[in-house]
Design a binder for these strands. Structure first.
Lengths: 340, 340
DNA sequence: TGAAATAATGTAAACGGTTACAGTAAACGG
DNA sequence: CCGTTTACTGTAACCGTTTACATTATTTCA
């Protein structure tokens, strides 16, 4: 046993089965037919030797990795569970592997994205995980890529899958105004530049404007779509001496809503009597918060699925630059004052 | 431009900088020092050419992938968000990549695990994602591996990180019995063979026994640690004509608790007045369910971190076969009848 | 000052597959 | 019956790195 690595190679299989390595390779990849005689022998030998093709060697020779990458800002949100589910299901069905990586503004200074053409066949880019410049580079090199929860920057024609944010947010905010008579509506932003956040804010502003309510920038906080950040933001707001009055909170998303609920509870503010609260996403726990959360149902798992399928479409040379915007739906529960 | 691939190789860099490929390689990997003169030239050339080393070629030559794998049963649980967070943080810090793959009983018949020695340097194995036989094979071949939420099978010395289940469950069930006077306690199992589930059941049985309460197998249902399955199980139980009486539910975990809460709500059963409900994990939403959920706080993110650090320990030749069991803590809230 | 040690670099053989190209045997068709 | 197709199979180059070993340039020091 002088071989460096103890692993079984295609040559071992070939020798043991009395054929050439090319034949073994062809049988494994089902490229070219192989005589049934040889096929049977290979089956036996391969399982006897427990042969598993070495991924790196394969990748190098074939210039494919059979891996797709999912690039995220972070993983601090229950929102990612349905998204991952949708993505992973498709990836697995295709016999590919999935690399999950985070990459965000602060890491951008010193590092390049951990995944890209050098180790994946294609990328799902969530949100603002990559700056426009990175997108341009990858896109012009023809690297397969689908944007998730973000539309392509100008001049770039990259397929994209996201959900409808503006109109639904506007409608829901108008619900607060028109049905529940709210006028001092706190708005929690998500991460700066995050497109969902930007659009929800646009919907918010447009609703206020359409209803003749002046926009008070003091009512706009940064919640970052994170439980803890939203909690801090809400708490900070509440503890301010000269705090503006408010009668309701658009929390940004369901995860942030949890932090907001916590802060309001701790300050003895009753929901929805003293302040209405609404979320976004309709994560699994939303109906069971206290009180049940009025929110927007977003088809997150479907987003993951469709985006991944489209990425495989690109890999199989079905080019596309379509922007798919999946519909969303308002779910009225108690936290806004309905169903009390 | 006749090169097949448009990608820049190490040879391009070497030529452009007037050095050999070996020097370039050494500079990139910081193996052997390089004259400052050459280093500067390489910096310039590499960024000019936008050179990125080809992962597969690297992996093949170095017999390392710089990838670690996380093998899960599925991704149907918010529990995985903190776990993934812990894992991903360490992986990123080490400059590695993370492949997330699911592999479960039903896929086992026809396929082999999607990740292993052929495409990763080490594996985090969650729960029953692999059968004992797979573990034996991998372990005897010396492949680095850490078990998560599962202890090694007999005779196998694989490091493992999990949380304390038995004693804490026993304590919490005894809390139901002794503080709240419950005696008909429904128990929802997780996936069959899943170790957390098995141990929680052991704790449950032991608590009943210690308190002289006979075990009624009719009170044990399969919740699978999944919201929807738990909902169906609970609903099925409630709709049975001859259903056994019950006064409380140990739901298995917080995610299943959501399904149980839903079923109870829909059937007009008040919590905790008509039935106490307790979960496990203390996921972020637990304090804000209706009612706030009594549960067990499990340090899931820490589990992910420690397990990953230990895996890197193995990669760096610090062998270990220690089983680490992190402590858990009871969190009393309203759903069990406390703090009413 | 020159031999020996040290530092930096180059050469070329792996790593374990895929695949273009060539070859051979059997089947086919006129 | 023989040229042509068809169906497999083999040979060997190549994928883009790493790294053992060899080589050269520079210090060190007796």
């Amino acid at each position: 046993m002088t071989r460096r690595s103890s692993s079984v190679t295609i040559r071992d299989v070939a020798r043991e089965a009395g054929v050439s390595v090319a034949t073994v390779s062809r049988y494994i990849n089902q490229n070219t037919p192989v005589s049934t005689n040889v096929a049977e022998r290979l089956d036996v030998v391969m399982s006897k030797l427990r042969y598993v093709p070495h991924a790196a060697a394969r990748n190098l020779a074939s210039r494919k990795t059979r891996v797709i990458g999912l690039l995220l800002n972070n993983l601090h949100n229950d929102f990612f569970v349905p998204l991952l589910n949708g993505v992973e299901a498709v990836v697995r069905k295709k016999g590919y592997n999935l690399i999950v990586a985070t990459y965000h503004a602060s890491s951008r200074n010193h590092m390049q994205p951990p995944i890209g053409p050098h180790n994946t066949d294609g990328l799902l880019v969530f949100s603002d995980g990559l700056m426009d410049e990175d997108l341009v580079t990858l896109n012009t090199s023809g690297f397969p890529m689908v944007l998730v929860h973000r539309t392509p920057p100008l001049h770039l024609r990259i397929p994209s899958v996201t959900v409808e944010n503006i109109e639904i947010t506007k409608k829901l905010v108008e619900h607060l105004i028109q049905v529940h008579g709210k006028r001092r509506i706190l708005f929690l932003r998500g991460p700066i530049h995050q497109e969902d956040s930007v659009r929800r804010e646009a919907g918010y502003r447009s609703a206020l404007q359409a209803n003749g309510i002046p926009i008070d920038e003091n009512l706009i906080l940064n919640g970052d779509f994170e439980r803890d950040v939203a909690y801090e933001a809400m708490n900070g707001f509440l503890s301010r001496q000269d705090r503006a009055t408010f009668d309701s909170v658009f929390t940004g998303d369901d995860d942030a809503a949890i932090g907001v609920l916590k802060a309001l509870h701790e300050n003895g503010i009753r929901i929805p009597e003293d302040a209405a609260v609404i979320g976004f996403d309709d994560l699994g726990f939303a109906p069971f918060l206290n009180p049940p959360l009025t929110t927007v149902r977003a088809p997150t798992e479907t987003v993951g699925q469709i985006a991944t399928e489209r990425l495989f479409g690109l890999l199989e040379n079905h080019p596309s630059d379509e922007v798919i915007i999946l519909p969303t739906e308002i779910i009225l529960r108690r936290s806004c004052g309905c169903q009390s």
